[in-house]
Simulated assay, not measured.
Amino acid sequence: MSTQTLAVRLKRLLGDETTVALRPRYEGSNICTWIGFKHVNYLVEEAVLDHFRTAELPARELFEEYGLGLDLVELDTRIAHALHMDDLVEATVAPATKDDDDALRFRVTLTVVRDGERLRAATSKVRVLLVPDEYLDAAAPAAELARFTARAPEPEPAGPAPAPVVNTSLAEGRGTSAGDPVLEQLTAGENAFGWKWRIPYPYCHFTERIQMSGYLRQMEEVVDLFLADRGISIKQLLDDRRWIPVVPRSSVRILDHALMEEDLYTVYTVEEVYKEHTYTSRMDCYVVRDGQLVKTATGHITHGYAVIENRRDWSLVGFDERVLKAFHGRPAVG
Rank of each mutant, 00 (worst) to 15 (best):
G179H: 05
F319L: 03
A55R: 02
R249D: 05
H51V: 03
Y274N: 06
A332Y: 14
C204R: 09
D239M: 07
L83A: 03
Y201V: 06
A82G: 08
D284E: 15
L227Y: 09
R282T: 10
G318H: 15
L136C: 15
N167C: 08
H328M: 11
V126C: 02
S29F: 06
V8L: 14
A326Q: 13
N191F: 09
C285M: 03
L57I: 09
H257P: 09
V93A: 12
V222K: 10
Q4L: 04
Y305F: 14
G329F: 00
V89Q: 04
I79N: 01
A138V: 14
K38N: 02
G28W: 05
I79S: 06
D256H: 15
D99S: 12
N310E: 13
I234F: 07
L119F: 07
L227M: 12
Y268I: 02
V288K: 10
H328R: 13
Q185Y: 07
P162C: 10
G36Y: 13
R60N: 05
V246F: 11
M85N: 08
T18P: 10
A150M: 05
L49V: 01
E262T: 12
Y215W: 13
T54P: 00
T123G: 02
V128P: 01
V126Y: 12
T109G: 12
Q4A: 07
R322E: 07
G67L: 12
G159I: 01
L49E: 02
G291W: 09
L13Y: 06
H257R: 15
L10H: 14
R241A: 14
V267F: 06
L145A: 12
T266V: 11
A192Y: 13
D240G: 04
V20A: 06
Q236F: 10
I254H: 07
L259A: 13
